[in-house]
Write a protein that binds this DNA or RNA. Sequence first.
RNA 1: GGUCCUAUAGUUCAAUGGAUAGAACGGAGGUUUCCUAAACCUUAAAUCCAGGUUCGAUUCCUGGUGGGACUACCA
Length: 596
Amino acid sequence: MMERILKGKIREAIKVLYNSDVNNDLIQIQVTRKDFKGDFTLVVFPLLRFSKNTPEKTGETIGNHLVSTFPAISGFNVIKGFLNLEISGKWWTGFFSEMASQSDLLAKCRVPDPEVILVEYSSPNTNKPLHLGHIRNNLLGFSLYRILSACGHKVIKTNIVNDRGIHICKSMLAWQKYGNGETPESSGMKGDHLVGKYYVIFEKEYKQQIEALVNKGMQEEEARNSAPLMKEARDMLVKWEAGEKEVMELWRMMNSWVYAGFDETYRTLGVDFDKIYYESDTYKIGREIVLKALDIKILYTHDDSSIWVDLSGEGLDQKLLLRNDGTAVYMTQDLGTAVLRQEEYGFSRCLYVVGNEQNYHFQVLKAVLRRMGYRWSNGLFHFSYGMVELPEGKMKSREGTVVDADDLIVEMKETAREVSLELGKLSEYSGVEKEEIFRKIGLGALKYFILKVDPKKNMTFNPAESIDFNGNTGPFIQYTYARIKSVFRKAEQTGIEYDPGLLGKARAGEKEIAMIKLLRRFTQTVDEAASIYSPALLANYCYDLAKEYNQFYHDFSILGESDPATRNLRMALSKVTSEVLSKGMWLLGIEMPERM
RNA sequence: GGUCCUAUAGUUCAAUGGAUAGAACGGAGGUUUCCUAAACCUUAAAUCCAGGUUCGAUUCCUGGUGGGACUACCA
């Protein structure tokens, strides 16, 4: 790594010039900004205390010393307090030959001490289909999995399905009353959508009952509780918890419909899981640990015998962990899931990909586990991401403003088809091939749009405008890739061969060196994306690289270049760029079409 | 009330405490006998306010203001 070498040389230089030992933190090396001459920049301000001189003089002195002692540095200039070091073209081409010959681009990213890391993502409710918010969740979770795996960690993708509770009973009850035995087969509906339909029917009927009661003079609060449908739903939950046969069978049947539907969505989205947990299993474990903790006086009971934890010492509140009837709440099952996972995998880190609306929940979860003495709770990390909002505000299922995941994916593919057919570049390909290309482009646009944004920020999705295929978009990067592939097809046709052996002989021009510099940043970007959990970093890197390559492609002929060494260099640059783009996008879960 | 997140061109997004705050879309204008114009080039346009720390602040700290979330015996 050039930065590290430079740091060492500069340390030596300061030792010799000023007879001082410098802390590494004070040697700040950065990539030289565009518009300035040079490759790496040393910020000299922090070193003035050693030189006891002006920034200009200090830069000058260090620059001169470096040029005379380190051959890779071919020159320098000092502007204000910035020492811009110029690295010789030979060093760059040398670096690039090495990179071009490497079979595994990510080899440098492997950490010396791999960890076992669990990533929990998706976490759907089984009473309604997935929506745009879940898409962000799934894409982030899956991409984190790929990025952390690329760094050599053993990463386990898990999903926790919220498959129990009153909300599930609502769909079940509505289906029982109004469904007339409708099934996914009989209706032709996707299972999760069918179940979601009955959830909506329940809410509609329930609302009518409340209104009727209020009109008879009842208070709204009371009406809400005494509406017949709600009573029936509660009865059903009691029966479910008691394991009553009929209810369990209905529950299993409708759940199986939902899971089949989810599986389809996951498949089209290109995400999967190594291990799926069900809340209906883990809440029992949660109950046990809560009772155990009560025995050793970590928790306390209220007058009504419900069980609580007092976290006011940690700046949090009291929190209920088990109801007075012994039934579990959300926190109970998450405690159980965490403990179960630790037993099964012995993870050192567990990432919860869950929206920022649950920040408080995860603070409490961690605090309770710590209180209970689980050391590994330190490794729990809430990967808190922002909401996806519509231009008119938050998505609300009650107001029907939810963007359905399946619909959106279909629309994306359709738009890709329209754009593509209009451009008319694919006429020679078969229907199947074309469909595959449309799919990759449509999904690529959607995925990139979501992943390029800093995860912790809320983002806006405008159905009419957000999905573009020009500019800073997935298809832009895919297009760059497809063009490179096209160059190599052309090379094959015309019999131009790429000869890596000639790389050493090429002299790189300014633009070629710019490309090399950018390519060099790939592994650093992967490392950083892993350490700060940010796929967005990688997405933006891929864009920068594609942008740079497009300029290069526009300004220079690759195959048309007559000098064999230069042509080879340009071909190598194209090849490595395509590999980096493809690998980078792969880390985001985005596929690349060979042509478009 | 308390806690957390957030505020950058008209819009959607960038910027390890560093130089002249980058892109894209949209606006205005231009490039195609040449490896894919889903591209490339030119151009106008922005750091919420007030303090503080620093040689240097969009970035860190404090206080405001605006937006969002949480503060459920829902999940």
